[in-house]
């Protein structure tokens, strides 16, 4: 549209004031597909995201109650579980672990991943148009920085996985895929909203941005990204697994030669005895 305007003002007449679109009918109408992607398809994906997350949370809780009901040993270290859960949820504490660099990158990655799409002014404009209300907006500059941070962090995480043998050993295919896929809407969105970089690819970037975003939304509740709601339950599930069936944890400890040790000891005390196994190795991997 910008180009059209410039050419009009050059020609020197103001007669053609009407905003007629002279876009030719192309075989692949990019703008129509963008409109579809952020209209019906977005509603579908967003509804799947919200309802799917509620579903997975409800199913998990139902499972937890099932297990708890059938477990003969109902004594759980609630205080310890709460403490651990809170500790895992507070990112500041996470920064001072054995892997400070990775933790910092991961923290920034998550920060940008959550803040940018929610509080971006352009997204808010769409919400305003569609449902009539929106969240407060981040300044464009901050949003730009956060976006670049996310892209950078995603790439670092990806290469970290590839380069470190220890990380490679515990990675599945989707673990490599996710950082890259998550970076796509951020990178394309950045390019699209800053035409300085590549003014001619706006439509293509927007198309990629919209469809990659939709794809991510729809995949969150059905993949490991569901940890965005399930993460607070991981400690509880771990402890339940340790308890169920009855005495399972004690039998494991017995086999390992630490029969008298309580299984819910804090990690610090376990570390004091270097030969002690980490009970968390038995934890169920949350998907």
């Amino acid at each position: 549209m910008c180009r059209e305007r410039i050419s009009r003002s050059r020609s020197g007449t103001v007669e053609t004031v009407a905003f007629t679109s002279l876009r030719l009918k192309r075989r692949f109408d990019t703008e129509a597909w963008i409109e579809f992607g952020r209209g019906p398809l977005f509603r579908l994906c967003f509804a799947l995201l919200v309802l799917g997350l509620i579903r997975i949370l409800a199913l998990t809780w139902a499972g937890i109650f099932d297990v708890y009901r059938h477990s003969p040993d109902k004594i759980l270290p609630w205080k310890e579980i709460t403490k651990k859960t809170l500790a895992w949820l507070i990112p500041v504490r996470k920064l001072w672990t054995a892997r400070p660099v990775y933790s910092a990158i991961s923290f920034l990655f998550h920060l940008g991943l959550i803040l940018t799409p929610l509080f971006l002014a352009s997204h808010n404009l769409l919400w305003q148009k569609g449902v009539g209300f929106s969240l407060p907006s981040l300044p464009q500059r901050v949003a730009n920085i956060l976006t670049l941070l996310v892209v950078g962090a995603a790439l670092s995480i990806f290469f970290g996985r590839v380069l470190y043998p220890a990380a490679r050993a515990i990675s599945r295919a989707q673990d490599y895929l996710w950082p890259l896929l998550l970076a796509v809407p951020f990178a394309t969105g950045y390019v699209a909203s800053n035409p300085v970089i590549s003014p001619r690819t706006y439509e293509l970037m927007m198309l990629l941005h919209v469809y990659a975003g939709d794809l991510i939304l729809v995949m969150i509740p059905f993949t490991k990204l569901a940890h965005c709601v399930l993460a607070p339950l991981s400690q509880l599930v771990t402890h339940l697994a340790w308890k169920f069936p009855a005495g399972a944890g004690d039998r494991v400890a017995e086999t390992l030669g630490y029969a008298a040790m309580p299984t819910w000891l804090p990690q610090a005390r376990l570390r004091a005895r270097p030969e002690a196994p980490n009970p968390e190795q038995g934890q169920v991997i949350q998907k």
Partner: peptide
Amino acid sequence: VGCHAQVAEREKKPEVAQCAECHKGK
């Protein structure tokens, strides 16, 4: 937009003609 587009072209500053240059949200 007309003026901004001219400036963007003249000064070689494409971002001047960008939507977000003026529309900064609510």
